[in-house]
């Protein structure tokens, strides 16, 4: 019984990081109606930024977190102007194709650079023991940082002028433009924010698990599940959805082979799409 509880707690810790990744996806989706298919590749960028900074430059592992937030923001603004800007307001297929192309380019570059062999970054954090069960220090730290970053995002969106402008543009872009808000810049910034969130979640995942250039796809799919659980364009819901997904993984792990976990997850995904098409935690949109 305690074993299951320990597994569930560990699942929740990892789930908070899934939530952070999904926040990046859902923010972009909610603000500009673009499904960012380069999301997984950006998660991988975050992983390799950790690898480069720690293994090549010898930085402390969590020092990579603020670096990745800034770098992700800059990369995101770059990607916005390269592949997204001209797709805004066009049929969704256009932005799907262009972000998918960005995804392929990023993965291709990564494969050329690092090949597809697995990488591992050793991060030493003291573990916490409780009744004979050990909770890995990196999992606890990653979850704590994910919650802190989510809190900062909330403060940004609800208590700063620029964050309110992001929400205004998400609600009604034309009205925002008529208010004097430079909406194109706001969209670029929101894309940068979304990419920074995806990237930093990759950095945190890489402190916990080994990874390859191709790891992104799994996290992209998880982000879709989380987004469906949490409701579209709803960052708070994304965190809840991530934690819910982690909880389900933790709950299922003791009872079945690991290869069955995706079947449970995507079974849930289909179930939610049918039963709760607006998301389970969707309380913001009326």
């Amino acid at each position: 019984m305690i074993g299951i509880l320990a597994s569930v707690i560990d699942g929740i810790l990892i789930g908070a990081v899934y939530g952070l990744a999904a926040m990046g996806l859902t923010l972009i989706w909610g603000v500009m109606n673009v499904i960012n298919l380069a999301h997984g590749a950006i998660v991988v960028v975050g992983m390799f930024v950790l690898y480069m900074l720690v293994s090549a430059l010898g930085l402390p592992a969590y020092g990579a977190v603020p670096v990745m937030i800034v770098l992700g923001f800059v990369i995101g603004i770059g990607l916005y102007w390269i592949g997204v800007h001209r797709m805004i307001g066009r049929p969704e297929l256009m932005s799907l194709l262009s972000t998918f192309a960005l995804n392929m380019v990023l993965i291709g570059l990564g494969t050329a650079w690092w090949t597809t062999s697995p990488y591992n970054v050793q991060v030493n954090m003291p573990s916490v023991s409780w009744r004979g069960y050990t909770f890995t220090g990196t999992h606890i730290t990653a979850a704590a940082l994910a919650v802190v970053i989510a809190g900062l995002l909330y403060l940004l969106l609800y208590h700063t002028r620029i964050g309110k402008a992001v929400r205004a543009v998400a609600t009604n872009r034309e009205a925002a433009e008529l208010c004097g808000i430079p909406t194109t810049q706001v969209l670029a910034m929101a894309f940068g924010l979304g990419v920074a969130l995806a990237g930093v979640s990759g950095t945190l995942i890489a402190t916990m698990f080994p990874f390859t250039v191709l790891s992104g796809e799994a996290y992209q799919l998880k982000s879709f599940v989380v987004t469906v659980l949490g409701g579209l364009g709803n960052p708070a819901g994304a965190l809840m959805g991530g934690i819910a997904l982690g909880l389900i993984e933790g709950l299922a792990t003791p009872f079945m082979p690991v290869s069955w976990i995706p079947i449970v997850e995507f079974g849930l995904f289909v179930f939610c799409l049918i039963a709760f098409p607006r998301g389970i935690f969707s309380f913001t949109k009326a």
Partner: peptide, 24 residues
């Protein structure tokens, strides 16, 4: 000029159908 630049100069439209930010 784009609309936001005109609004910043004081050329301001109150659009048809109000167009408020309803969840704000």
């Amino acid at each position: 000029l784009p609309a936001h630049a005109k609004a910043a100069r004081g050329l301001v439209l109150v659009p048809e159908g109000r167009q408020l930010f309803n969840n704000m």
